[in-house]
Design a protein around this nucleic acid. Structure first.
Lengths: 190, 190
DNA sequence: TCCCTAATGCAACAAAAGTTGCGTTATTGT
DNA sequence: ACAATAACGCAACTTTTGTTGCATTAGGGA
């Protein structure tokens, strides 16, 4: 018997990850401490330190968990509609949650979190690229486009604004970013 | 006599900010401590705590300093050349320095650093947008483009790769990003 | 059901981060 | 030149963060 994943261990993990999200939403990433998460989860801090090691590894685990949850790919009938749906969803995620920013911040501090972030976006990008693949099949876009790069180009300005230049994002920005990526794809430079 | 900016104070500030960059380049942001910076600068840690408060405020001050240093705007004769020059410069900055990532990371933790980051990129974007303004004057691009947004669209994919999806960046990526932004501008969607 | 032990709780400890009071140095206005 | 005082150095202290040894609880196979 090397490991023991059922019963209490699973309950503790769920409680701790839920407490992590809750603390994050209430106080933000800078105030996220192992002690606060442990107390909120009704668990001793040594447990968290032993199983995760730090708040950043904690966030990495939380991200792994959400990565494996299903995600609904839009299917509006046109690439433009699909891409706008994706970028709008991204933009709205930043309006409501402090979670995505926290995960990116954690990735700067912990290799574990950085790996989780990379895996997460690799999975999401591959899924989202399907809307471009479908567009090529419908003849909306040239066959030699790079589907992942179209998605990347569409989403990048939103993240750039939020994380780098600290400019606001809204639906208008999301639509413009999607249309810009589409124009580049149609011009054959992506 | 309220403040005393000359002589020793200025020397201490320069020494501490230089030590901050040096520590950053050697050990990276996660290992950046007030104590290490102070020792390296030949200054006591209380001095740093009293004048700056934290490593993040320290980085903010360092960023303010570099923001005010002049920056050479490319002028190759075409928008495409200018934009590629800009994105390539950005891409190369990530290859050599750990500094830009550290500043972004600091902005997550300190409002002071976030403000400095915003001001820094606002200044740089306004400058860089001049290459687009010149292109409009030359008739290379339609008159109703948003110059800042062209620059933003060109640079965004690089930052997105480095910070969010953790994908590598090179000259090829930089050129593609610049050409994609240009295609969007020519199509009139930016 | 019973035993083995992985996983947790607890308390005491160690280390790092940040603060405070006070004496000393050196800039700046007169 | 010289006094006034902003800024710094130093040491002791407080707080926060992370660790370790040991007792206790509970999962899972026999």
């Amino acid at each position: 018997m090397s490991t023991r994943p059922g019963g209490r261990s699973a309950r503790v993990r769920d409680a701790v990850l839920a407490a992590t999200y809750a603390e994050l939403a209430e106080h933000g990433y800078p105030a996220l401490t192992v002690d606060a998460v442990a107390t909120r989860a009704g668990v001793h801090k040594t447990t968290v330190y032993r199983r995760w090691g730090s708040v950043d590894d904690l966030l990495a685990d939380a991200l792994d968990q959400t990565r494996d949850t299903p995600w609904a790919l839009p299917d509006t009938g046109t690439v433009e509609g699909d891409l706008i749906a994706i970028t709008t969803e991204v933009a709205e995620a930043f309006g409501h949650l402090a979670v995505p920013t926290a995960v990116v911040a954690a990735a700067f501090q912990s290799p574990r979190a950085a790996g989780a972030l990379r895996d997460f976006y690799a999975a999401r990008q591959t899924q989202a690229a399907l809307v471009v693949v479908r567009a090529v099949e419908r003849g909306e876009l040239p066959a030699d486009v790079d589907p992942v790069d179209v998605v990347r180009t569409a989403c990048a300005p939103l993240y750039y604004r939020v994380f780098v230049t600290r400019e606001p994002v809204d639906v208008a920005v999301a639509e413009r970013a999607a249309r810009a990526a589409l124009a580049a794809a149609r011009a054959g430079v992506i």
